[in-house]
Design a protein around this nucleic acid. Structure first.
Lengths: 182, 182
DNA sequence: GACTTTCGTTTGTCAACACGAACAACGACC
DNA sequence: GGTCGTTGTTCGTGTTGACAAACGAAAGTC
């Protein structure tokens, strides 16, 4: 599938969803409406700056301008899910795992209790971790950049250096997303 | 930050990481090495097909060509963050947006209140949504597969069909991860 | 030393992208 | 009916992206 047809569909979809005419979008993006017209007709081969201007004008992520295929559903109730590493008093559940354990991006839920810090060694270089505190308070991050986080706090940090998670209230629930480099 | 400078850095980074020379990459991608040379020098304005060929030849996701040389850290306290679309009484905050205007997977926090459903139109085909209820209870999902979720519940569903989020307790906090197709 | 190979750059040419203007189609309004 | 205003389209033109070839620089090989 050539990217041009994908962009054509996505552009038309996003533009109509935004309720904009070709003229209006062209003016907002600083482009000629003829350019947009041809793009929606899947003609041509737009440059990056053109697409960039379109994405900004539509106020959508850049990835919205591309398409492909097929998902299914998964529901994991609290307390369910494939539980791993219930070391000591910590409990973890894998929410999202792509293929064999930890291939590209994994999503975990950690139920931490006070007094039992969880230490993680360095993951592969380039790994990025996204921590979301759901309830309670927790101290999370690399040793030299620990952060005290409360409910709703979000912390993004490198996963390729040693780091730790620790509840500093009685209990704490943390959602953790890990991005692995390819 | 203009996209071509990002591409210039990303291209050089990914190419050297792959241990390829300009000539080798040019042949694999079916491009002229002069084109690649100029792109790494941040000169010009490449077309989509050119970038597409490069991404395929490097075997990296398309969004990688817009990544800055991470990882760095980001901390978003509760109530902070770039807030979007505070329509009615709902409040959203973008937690994770990959690269210049979010290219691959975005992370949101929704603070829902009862009686104000949030309806989302279909996202690009292949989009997957991961909903994590942090507190309260919420009814989330496609119209024909709505799920009542409580704290800790996780629901994964297709984002390429219309769907909605609605609090069924006084308040509810939901973390939502969106995966966009390549 | 000279010869060879590979590296990335720079040059000139052709194709095509982005532009603007003119175009026809449709609806609103008086 | 007529006259706007807006829709999206199709032309003609200048600019520029992508290419191939030539280029100098650096590293082997004999």
């Amino acid at each position: 599938m050539t990217p041009i047809t994908l962009i054509a569909r996505a552009l038309k979809r996003e533009r109509t969803k935004a309720g904009l005419s070709l003229s209006a979008l062209a003016e907002r993006a600083g482009l000629a409406k003829s350019t947009l017209s041809q793009l929606e007709a899947a003609q041509g081969n737009p440059s990056i700056e053109t697409l960039w201007a379109i994405a900004n004008a539509l106020d959508v992520p850049f990835g919205f301008l591309f398409d492909t295929a097929r998902p299914e559903m998964t529901l994991v109730r609290a307390g369910e899910g494939t539980q791993i590493n219930a070391e000591g008093t910590n409990l973890s559940a894998v929410l999202l795992s792509n293929g064999p354990p930890g291939s590209r991006r994994d999503l975990y839920r950690f139920d931490l209790v006070a007094g039992a810090a969880r230490h993680a060694a360095a993951h592969p270089q380039g790994t990025i971790e996204h921590a979301l505190v759901s309830s309670g308070r927790a101290r999370i991050g690399p040793a030299d950049a620990l952060q005290d986080l409360g409910p709703g706090d979000y912390f993004r940090f490198p996963g390729d250096i040693a780091h730790s998670y620790e509840a500093i209230s009685d209990e704490a629930t943390v959602f953790l997303a890990m991005e692995f480099p390819r």
